[in-house]
Computed example of a mutant assay.
Amino acid sequence: MTLIMAAAALTAGAVALVAYLLWPTWVARPAGAPNRLPVSVGGTLFNVPTTAIRRKIQRHSGPQERVDLNFVFPSLEPPDAPKHVSADTVEEKVQPIDRIFVSISAHHDALAPDLRVRTIYPRYLAPASTPVDDALTMRTFREGSPYANEDLFSAAAPALNARCSRDGLTPGMCLSERRIDGADLTFRFPRSWLSQWRDVANAIDRLTMQMQGPKGW
């Protein structure tokens, strides 16, 4: 009996030693959201910052019909978490818009943005153009047209075509569109930013390049 008890004690000690040596020293932690997500819109691959996506339901990889994003201008970084608005702060002075908004959507073979500028808009534009500076020009849409109360701003270098509403009860906003394969990118920004339109045009180019997925995905 003594020998059996000694053997059992030795076996238990050996098992305990092996268990101690093999026991993992790492601690499992919940996985956080990735910094960027690969998404497919209109069969075209994009690599978008997760925190830039405006709608929670769109924060997943894979095929999507549309993705809505926003970036801080001029840094083009994804925004921080939105601040909570309380009854004490709701009446505070409205802060100026510092975001450039981007929507990526499948175009389903609709007319390309550059063709719309060349073939559709001229039908509704006033004949005269107004120079804004040495490279940017403005043409007004005629009253009674589908684009009444809007103006078209154009420049060649850097390239920019933006259809902008006029200031009224709310500040005027501009739309500028780009097409990448099966998707259209629509950029929205305040009309007041046209005072630095070269920075805006370069920002649109940078965001377009940064969000394109690597070739061969």
Score class of each variant (00 low, 15 high):
1 M>H: 07
2 T>E: 06
2 T>M: 06
4 I>G: 15
4 I>R: 15
7 A>F: 02
8 A>C: 10
11 T>C: 12
13 G>T: 03
17 L>E: 02
17 L>R: 10
18 V>F: 08
18 V>A: 05
18 V>M: 11
20 Y>H: 13
23 W>N: 09
24 P>N: 03
25 T>N: 06
26 W>T: 14
27 V>R: 15
29 R>D: 03
31 A>H: 07
35 N>L: 11
37 L>Q: 08
37 L>R: 12
37 L>W: 08
41 V>E: 01
42 G>E: 01
42 G>N: 03
45 L>C: 05
58 Q>G: 00
58 Q>M: 04
59 R>F: 01
64 Q>C: 03
71 F>Q: 12
72 V>I: 07
75 S>Y: 04
80 D>E: 15
87 A>F: 09
93 K>N: 09
95 Q>T: 11
97 I>H: 04
99 R>Q: 11
99 R>V: 05
104 I>D: 07
109 D>A: 11
112 A>F: 05
112 A>K: 09
113 P>I: 01
114 D>P: 05
116 R>T: 10
121 Y>S: 05
121 Y>W: 05
123 R>A: 12
123 R>G: 05
127 P>Q: 08
130 T>G: 01
131 P>E: 03
133 D>Q: 07
135 A>M: 09
140 T>N: 14
144 G>K: 15
147 Y>R: 06
148 A>D: 08
150 E>A: 15
151 D>R: 15
153 F>M: 09
157 A>E: 11
158 P>R: 00
166 R>K: 12
167 D>E: 13
173 M>I: 07
175 L>Q: 14
175 L>E: 11
181 D>G: 01
184 D>Y: 05
184 D>E: 06
185 L>F: 05
195 S>Y: 05
197 W>T: 02
198 R>L: 01
199 D>M: 15
201 A>E: 00
202 N>T: 14
206 R>V: 15
206 R>L: 10
206 R>P: 00
207 L>E: 01
217 W>Y: 13
